[in-house]
Amino acid sequence: MIDWSLLALDPPGWGGVLLQGLFATLQIAIGGYLLGAVIGIFGALGKLYGGPVTRDLMEVYTTIVRAVPELILILILYYAGTDLLNQLLGLVGWGPVDISGLAAGIFVIGVVQGAYSTEVIRGAIKAIPPGQLEAARAFGFSPATVLRRITIPAMLPYAIPGLANLWLIATKDTALLAVVGFSELTLVTRQAAGTTKSYMLFFLAAGALYLAVTLISNAVIGMVERRSRRGFARPG
């Protein structure tokens, strides 16, 4: 009843196409997640130590991104981002370029993730015992050195559960890029299913792939969390 040969890796089967889609999904998830983490660090620093205008602008950014559906943000950023870039290139005198779907996808996932990581990292920095930062300042560390040597290493244990959760969200948010036509796992699955009419088989196969990513991530996250908490007193 079930035609397993449809999942074969070689061209009559669609297994290879699905794996390519999974690869594209992981690329975007990793790229967007890292971009989001960088935005998050600067966003958190801006919210905590920035001037009043920076703080309000950061607040506007995180509030808007967290209030508008990801699907709509992705559409707006996708069109606005490529449009703006082409207009800028036009001003410089270069012709319009085709922005690769990969770069655009990483950009939009990164901007969305950035708002959430800003909040996670801000909370983590606030959880650092203030004495540690005061001690660093008392030793004459410059603000940049305090950040590099104390703030970032000391906040990581507090930030890891939240950041781990964001990674799981990032892998699933990439599926939304299917709506703007980027060939990640969900879209190629739909194409495969539509071509062969074996909808159940392909959607279940893609679900298994996503689930595998989540479960492997969970195992790795558990290891990282145990490692990051060494030296902490056990709760309770």
């Binding site: 799981l168 599926a175 969900t186 539509g194 959607f203 679900g207 996503y210």
Partner: peptide
Amino acid sequence: CTVIRGTPLLLQLWLLYYGLGSL
């Protein structure tokens, strides 16, 4: 809970609509 939280909602939606809908 693990399976639903581990897969994208869009995929679940398409599985129900296209998959069950075609069955």
